[in-house]
Design a binder for these strands. Sequence first.
DNA 1: ATGCCGGGTGGAACCCGA
Length: 266
Amino acid sequence: MTLSIATWNINGVRARLDTFMTWLRQASPDIVCLQEIKTVDAGFPSEPVEALGYNVALHGQKGFNGVAVLSKLPLEDVSRGLPLGEDEVDEQSRFLEAVVSVQGGVLRIASLYLPNGNPIGTDKFAYKLAFMERLRRWAEERLKFEEPLLIAGDFNVIPHPIDAKNPQVWSHDALFQPESRAAFAALEHLGLTDALRASTDAGGIYTFWDYQAGAWQKDHGIRIDHVLLSPEAADRLEGATVEKHVRGWEKPSDHVPVIVRLGLET
DNA sequence: ATGCCGGGTGGAACCCGA
């Protein structure tokens, strides 16, 4: 059978409730990773989501950030936040890890909201790069398990010029800095596969269009929402698609969902 | 060089995003 896993930066789940529920009913993925829910756990619309058959795991935050994993399969293990070093504190809710059972083992899922990092040259950019290094170290440890693993979310990185309509516009932006792109490449060098790029080398595929300056109307987009796969997941990849049409709906998020399909028995 | 738009908080004007 095929398991479908989606990721979507929803830009405020409460402001997006109608759009979100409409999409969830239509697309009906087995697993959904959400970012920027922008609410504490108690503010998440768990009841209507559970009514559609989903289990809900949350790592919320007041006003900003916040990630979630929804799953039609039971969530057996949930862990909030990336590991921290000695004396390190991270008050930002940007990472949520969960495990579901599949035939012969488990499927491990991480919902990720990587820091934007703008403007460059500030502590925000340093925080982004430090966060990416923490993610790299975590992924390195998890890959030792040799199990199907997905890191799905808003990476806030434009990996290559082909992933932007106008790459030169982003040359001074944290999303397209050499350091940001190198840190993304370092994740791939661990053995992780960019699911969309494993499916196609076509240009013009974007997941974000700014609300401002008519970016959507001009198709001035960037591809910054990604799904990275461990070798055991990549071997089962059946396809990856971007739900572009959702950007044209009423009250859209500025991001659209990305869906990957894996051949896995449950 | 900055704002554009939109969500959040808190109850106006400001922070934040990408």
